[in-house]
Amino acid sequence: MASSSYQAAHLASPRIEQHFSDLIAQAGAKGESGFAKAPSTGVIEEIINAAFWASLRKEEGHSPRISIAFLSPQQAEQPLLFGKTLPLTVSALTKLAPGIERAGIHLGVWEQNGELFIWGTVLKIPNYCFVLDVSEPGLIVIKHRRLQGFGKYTNIAVLKGDEIKMLNKDCGRLQECPALVTALLDIHAPCSFNDGVNVQIQLAVSMRAHRHGALLLVVPPQSDDWKQSVVHPLQYPVYPSFDALHLLLTSDTAMHNDQFWQLSLRNEIENIAGLTAIDGATVMSSQHHLYAFGCKIVRKAKAETIEKVLFVEPVLGSKPTQKFIYELGGTRHLAAAQFIADHPQALAMVASQDGHFTIFNWSAQQQMVQAYRIDSLLM
């Protein structure tokens, strides 16, 4: 192990251990089975410590990108077993990183006789399995596989330098919280590939990944009201509307477990998410019909100019706070907030070039726009 300890690992580990213990205990009480063993506080601290110091090193000029899963080889499905186990050290992680940096590959780590060791790699892991991801130097994300195994993993904590963010499920229980946010917090999570909220999550992940900045407006189907808030003529109209994603999602459900159907779905999500990188807003219906991209958003005629939003970040210690819109970001955030104020039935998704991601929706109870900062949920 590294000679010096990462202080954030020591501080966060007890809370992470408690989360996994509670999660698995609740699952067992409901009669669920097939889930992984919860790691101890010491195990969590040791894994975080090794991953953090490894993330600051370089191998052949590249910073390590690592995903570690805590499970035994017996719990893994079709694991790739090393001929001999390796100690969990900074040096071992740095050397192995180039071979496991692709998405979906986890380095298997287990404990024996009080020592942690690396036993191989695995693609499929049990429900609620502890996973640690390193995607950039000094950034550690703790997550677990969802119970049904569909879609993005559920994030538990984000550690960046000396900053610790423990995610707060209670934010997802606030009135009028967007379904996308509650799903990311694993509250009433989508359980199928063709769930519309699950598709929105995958779109958000892809939009954030391209790092160009993006604005996606999700509007009610069979309504042209959104056109009152865009500059005409449209620069990039789509006519007739592009329905490939809609057709995939409404196809025979028997096809949805087919790997070729799933690949087609991912490709169409990447296709639409790619268009959001073009300057302006992309407009799509809640039934996944693509109407236009590169749209310039303007205030609806006779509508009031929005100044403040209710800002919510789903992390412990953060409370809903009214903020001026310019405190959140630039023109994309202003355009998104104004659009939602003018079209309360819509949803706006904004990705910033710096990695921030914000969901805007309307709160009838608060009579104002809500802004949920969710990049901690998308990492």
Rank of each mutant, 00 (worst) to 15 (best):
L71M: 15
L71Q: 04
P73Q: 03
Q74V: 13
Q74P: 04
Q75D: 15
Q75E: 11
Q75S: 13
A76I: 09
E77A: 14
E77F: 15
Q78K: 12
L81D: 05
F82T: 13
G83E: 11
G83K: 05
G83F: 03
K84M: 12
T85M: 10
P87W: 00
P87Y: 02
P87I: 03
L88M: 02
V90G: 03
A92S: 15
L93I: 08
A97D: 09
A97K: 04
P98D: 09
E101G: 11
L107M: 14
L107P: 08
V109C: 07
W110Q: 14
W110D: 10
E111S: 08
Q112F: 05
N113K: 13
E115S: 10
F117V: 15
I118R: 00
I118K: 01
G120N: 04
G120Y: 03
V122M: 05
K124S: 08
K124C: 08
I125T: 07
P126R: 03
C129F: 02
F130R: 00
L132Y: 03
V134N: 00
S135M: 05
S135N: 11
P137I: 08
P137F: 06
G138T: 04
I140Q: 00
I140G: 01
K143S: 13
R145P: 12
R145Y: 05
R146W: 02
G149A: 12
F150H: 13
G151E: 00
T154N: 06
N155W: 05
N155Q: 14
I156W: 00
I156V: 15
A157V: 07
L159T: 06
K160M: 10
G161F: 00
K165A: 09
N168C: 15
N168T: 06
K169N: 10
K169L: 09
D170N: 14
C171W: 06
L174T: 01
Q175V: 12
Q175L: 12
A179L: 12
T182G: 12
T182Y: 04
A183R: 03
A183G: 12
A183L: 02
L185R: 00
D186F: 01
D186H: 01
H188T: 06
P190N: 06
P190K: 02
P190L: 07
C191G: 09
C191K: 09
S192I: 05
F193C: 05
F193L: 10
N194Q: 09
N194A: 10
D195F: 02
G196H: 06
N198M: 07
N198D: 14
V199H: 02
V199L: 07
I201S: 04
Q202V: 09
L203W: 00
V205K: 01
V205F: 05
V205A: 10
M207E: 03
M207D: 03
R208I: 12
R208A: 14
R208P: 04
R208D: 11
R208V: 13
R208M: 15
R211M: 11
R211F: 15
H212N: 14
L215R: 01
L216R: 07
L217M: 14
L217H: 04
